[in-house]
């Protein structure tokens, strides 16, 4: 069983540690004794081929899936899930207006009613969503929907922001808008973990890279070092476009 929020922390600079986390599906280990650490305040890109277990690892961190074995520990005063927000590849928006979605999030996050109007206005401005604030959220374009999902996640003022391929199906302009919000979150002090296949995005955003292969982390490096000189055979093959599960 997963033990959430261990008291003892190995390293002050580390916000989150997964230790030997195992998750089995259909008899196969989709996360195979995964050990992973995330540096506080950094943007970490989790990369790997399809099926490597990246999205599952993200869901374990978010507390959405309970693994079969292993431990997860947070640093400092982290309170999962209160301090953790996740944005999914396909944004899940409520059947409400953009404003309604944000207002709902603030309510769930426990923001007092009298503060919600002001906070919604701030979030609309942050996401440059003011002109479409009263439009039905599910009728927006993919890029606009993902921007709503992003600012909704930021409404919680998370210490840890998890992004599961947030720009996978977006055009360059919409991708840029999302990346601007990711940068803003990081600048405001959030630790960001982003699952991405987009090497350009990883180079633009990430400080650190964690490379996963078949449910394990096989390489941990700074972004610069990873792209210049990957040390694992799997990462080298992935970057050369030759890695298949």
């Amino acid at each position: 069983m997963l033990e959430l929020v261990k008291a003892v922390q190995p390293d002050e600079a580390t916000l989150l540690t997964l230790d030997e986390v195992t998750l089995t599906r259909g008899g196969a280990a989709v996360l195979d004794a995964l050990s992973l650490d995330i540096r506080a305040g950094a943007i970490t890109a989790v990369m790997g081929a399809n099926g490597a277990g990246k999205s599952l690892a993200l869901r374990v961190i978010a507390g959405l899936i309970e693994p079969d074995a292993g431990e997860m520990s947070y640093a400092g005063e982290m309170r999962a899930p209160l301090d953790v927000s996740i944005v999914f590849q396909r944004p899940v928006l409520l059947r409400r207006s953009v404003r309604g979605n944000l207002r709902h999030a603030l309510k769930v996050y426990g923001v007092p009613r009298r503060q919600r109007t002001r906070r919604v206005a701030e979030l609309l401005e942050l996401g440059r969503l003011g002109l479409i604030a009263d439009n039905p959220a599910r009728a927006l374009s993919g890029g606009e929907q993902q921007r709503v999902a992003m600012v909704r996640a930021l409404a919680a003022r998370p210490k840890l922001l998890l992004l599961d391929e947030p720009t996978a199906s977006l055009d360059p302009q919409a991708t840029q808008a999302i990346e601007r919000l990711v940068r803003k979150a990081a600048d405001d002090g959030a630790t960001v973990v982003i699952v991405t296949h987009d090497r350009g995005q990883a180079k633009r955003l990430a400080d650190d890279i964690r490379f996963m292969h078949r449910g394990k982390m096989v390489e941990k490096a700074s972004a610069k070092r990873f792209f210049e000189n990957p040390t694992s055979a799997a990462a080298s093959a992935y970057l050369a476009g030759e890695l298949f599960l």
């Binding site: 869901r59 978010a62 507390g63 959405l64 899930p81 209160l82 953790v84 927000s85 996740i86 999914f88 899940v92 409520l94 999030a105 769930v108 996050y109 919680a156």
Partner: peptide, 15 residues
């Protein structure tokens, strides 16, 4: 559709 989102937001069963 909503379950993962609402749980990730920390919404209880009633919410």
């Amino acid at each position: 559709e909503y379950d993962e989102l609402l749980r990730s937001m920390g919404a209880g069963r009633l919410s």
